[in-house]
Design a protein around this nucleic acid. Sequence first.
DNA 1: AGTATCTTGTTATTCTTTTAACAATGCAAA
DNA 2: TTTGCATTGTTAAAAGAATAACAAGATACT
Lengths: 225, 225
Amino acid sequence: MNKESIKQIPHKTIERLSQYRRALLLVSAKGKTHIFSHEIAEIQHITAVQVRRDLMLIGYSGDLRKGYKIQALVELIGQIIDSPSGQKVAVFGLGNLGMALTHYLSGRRENLYIVAAFDVDEHKIGQSFEGVPCYGMEKVKEIVARENITIGIITVPAEEAKATKNLAIEAGVKGILNYTPVPMEVPEGVFLEEYDMITSLEKVAFYVKELGSSDLENTKRTASK
Amino acid sequence: MNKESIKQIPHKTIERLSQYRRALLLVSAKGKTHIFSHEIAEIQHITAVQVRRDLMLIGYSGDLRKGYKIQALVELIGQIIDSPSGQKVAVFGLGNLGMALTHYLSGRRENLYIVAAFDVDEHKIGQSFEGVPCYGMEKVKEIVARENITIGIITVPAEEAKATKNLAIEAGVKGILNYTPVPMEVPEGVFLEEYDMITSLEKVAFYVKELGSSDLENTKRTASK
DNA sequence: AGTATCTTGTTATTCTTTTAACAATGCAAA
DNA sequence: TTTGCATTGTTAAAAGAATAACAAGATACT
């Protein structure tokens, strides 16, 4: 896996690699050492050929008779998607969603550390939540620089979204995960990923309506992301 | 817009329509009555041609000189993606994330009503959160049927994910929004949308790493969904 | 009237992603 | 040995989505 080939791994494959790894760790914990593509596929509810194709893209070869060696595959995925020394993450906005994410993600993945949260609420500033210290917004530059935070999760109210994103990027954040409903733009060299819960909910509502109004429809849709 | 043509609206267009509508409502509130495709594009950080293409797909025609009539467009989008009498939503699992979603989505969209939450925690059962009553899991069938709940948001712990999804579908839910990291499968006639926060975070981490390791990269990536 | 400019609507093209097809391999059993 | 079977790895095709290209219309200006 040289740099060139990694570059051309499709986004969707990167996403699935993250998911394969977690699935593999689960089955590995049950004592299994090898796994077939169709077994992975079954767990993920996708097709075996897609699994094989993804693994082909990262250059992993399985055993024709035993399938894939779980441990080796987990390690290879780690080599591809993890940073050697990990990355640090900050949550911007400790409202309900920010708090939930902090709780949910804290300690979930080794190699990704939530090390700070920022909010405007005087009651939260100075406290720690899930072991994550909360600072005021005026501390962003200082903390991001000091801790070398590379990823920012934005969960502030819509009105503050743009300014917060700019602040984070100015402070040195290189990746933004935007959970506000406000579409963003980032400069060169910064990666942006957006997810809008309202859109997702409305999408589900739309297809529920559509499915209900026609029985001929191809019904099962496992859209993800 | 007959049924046939709606059917073939791409998923991504449906998602964008939801976003266009909210953007339009915002600018409409500022007194604007007409808008050009490139203005919508600018707000959404996409291209004007994509906006026009989306609007073409839903059969909306703008004025060649004034652009699109905001109110009429909002109404048309509503006709396409909303159900005439709205739909009811239940949250399964009132942990941090479920609570955040309940808070975040409650009353956010007319036409989509969060009318119930389900949890196993005795302290939560019987209480209301954001005006949403919380019931025990044994009440799912009764409440879903009585309230005619069509959409279920799953935010239970991973171990309970599959069983909860099955319970919801048995009770009559037709759309599932899965926020657990457990990939799901649904029977014919049920729509499934999945979002995995860990995957998103790992994806951002991966591309931050990649961007950092090469300056030649096409840097700006506004992947959404 | 004629020309320039800006916009929409639509077709064509390119790019991305998924799915299908199938050769090659290794083992087991006849 | 040979046949059959289940698997991987890869190429080819199809489907889905974004981008480009451009004709046509409307207005303003000369």
